[in-house]
Nucleic acid binder design. Structure first.
Lengths: 258, 258
DNA sequence: GCAATAGTGTCTGTAAGACAGTATATT
DNA sequence: AATATACTGTCTTACAGACACTATTGC
């Protein structure tokens, strides 16, 4: 169902003078669950493919603010550390056979012709972020959209060039992980060694020796062993937490991991 | 002198329907000369500050193509490897007290009011590149602009947020240099060890031990010692060249230098 | 011979990488 | 006892980092 009172409906049908023309933001939201790296995608009932949580930029806000606002509006996620990673601007990237003026007119019930701003080129400023899987509140109030995590290895059919955007986001994330600590936004406050170990393996897509991995994190001082274990069916794993001071310093100064 | 036949004059006075709204590209062009890292800036006679080689994006081209075209038009430099590094979109970033509607009207001889598109927000997609200092042909045919290399340590007063853009470009370049080989676009085909050594020191802004530096480059196999020396007033330095295959592979796969 | 610049060899310490056995829990 | 998972210690090798002397030219 199209929600005709929604802001985005107003933008599409009435115009966008409060928004920057030819510009949009797209968010690649990564999460981690069951030893797999996931990406959060949206499904609008009027469109057959899944898409990133994207939107437009108000004239009074920065692209960073727009990305955060759009993420909150479309997924309910707040306080994300969004990382700008690339601009996509290939001419024709936002031309979709599925969204013709006729179909859009039918969908919205308002006459939309080929000169409508939606058919002019749109440049996407893309962001990626990491968030805890469990934090997402599935919120279908936005235009009746479905919101779902997908394994990065097995994505569904994607809208426009969103598959390429996700691929580039993953590339940026993997480059990033060599220089900066990862996990603070992705793991619960107290986590186990196997959890953080599997997280790194999921992001890098390769095996890391568990002994060397632990040694490295401990010698960097970014994790602290707690005097507490997690219940388990087998040997209970010890809990660890991040040393926020060392972690933040590592974010600032950069590190080398593997 | 304003060149009224120039394309950019037409864009400003007549409108920009061939161009994307609210968008621009800016190029931070780095060069290397006399052991110093330089940046190429332009000076329009009508504006008191120096600026980056920036311009607008045609609806039929990508941001990358626009950046290359603009660089060529404003500096004469061709075949640059432009690297997208960040988008600048802080609201108000393109408001300049110096460029009021009145002053612009005076300059162009055409009535330009406050609703003119130049006063709406403009988001800058910024690129950096490295080029050989000697390749720049100073070309003042573009709106009578002056074009000059500046030491990155001692920049003049800069237009709008261009100082910040240069600072971020340098940060991106320094991060880049740890992961990828640098120098192919910046040095002559045959170069000496002191030349490439000084280049790295200039970019990183710190001393590198000459023995360890040579050992690293040779063990990576990205430079090859030639059976040839350069004439000199003192001991003639040997000439080296890049091993393009290894160099390109390093670009592709990434390396770690220092 | 002197000044200026080019060029390299060695030692040490640290950490990455490879590797396998022990510990702790449940059933 | 068997099973499943958690945990860690040692050895080797490679390289980063520190360091100083020799080589080649012009004047």
């Amino acid at each position: 169902m199209i929600d005709k009172s929604h802001e985005s409906y107003r933008i599409i049908t009435e115009g966008n003078q409060d928004y920057l023309s030819n510009l949009a933001v797209d968010n690649v939201i990564f999460g981690y669950h069951g030893k797999e790296l996931k990406v959060l995608l949206l499904k609008n009932p009027a469109i057959s493919t899944w898409m990133l949580a994207g939107g437009y930029i108000k004239k009074t806000e920065s692209a960073e603010n727009a990305a955060a606002r759009v993420a909150k509006e479309r997924t309910g996620l707040d306080n994300l550390f969004l990382q700008q990673f690339k601009v996509f601007s290939t001419p024709g990237r936002n031309q979709t056979p599925e969204l013709t003026p006729e179909i859009l007119s039918d969908l919205t019930g308002v006459k939309i012709d080929e000169n409508h701003w939606m058919f002019s080129p749109i440049v996407s400023i893309s962001f990626y972020t990491l968030t805890e899987f469990s934090k997402v509140k599935v919120d279908t109030s936005y235009m009746g959209e479905e919101c779902k995590w997908w394994d990065v290895q097995t994505l569904p059919d994607l809208f426009q060039d969103h598959r390429q955007i996700i691929a580039e986001a993953l590339k940026a994330l993997r480059l990033h992980i060599y220089h900066y600590p990862i996990g603070y936004e992705l793991l619960p406050e107290k986590f186990t060694l196997p959890e953080i170990h599997n997280l790194y393996q999921a992001i890098l897509g390769k095996q890391l020796d568990d002994r060397n991995f632990t040694r490295k994190l401990m010698s960097l001082g970014i994790i602290i062993k707690l005097d507490e274990v997690k219940t388990s069916n087998h040997r209970p794993p010890n809990l660890y937490t991040f040393n926020k001071a060392t972690y933040d310093q590592a974010l600032e100064e950069g590190i080398f991991i593997f």
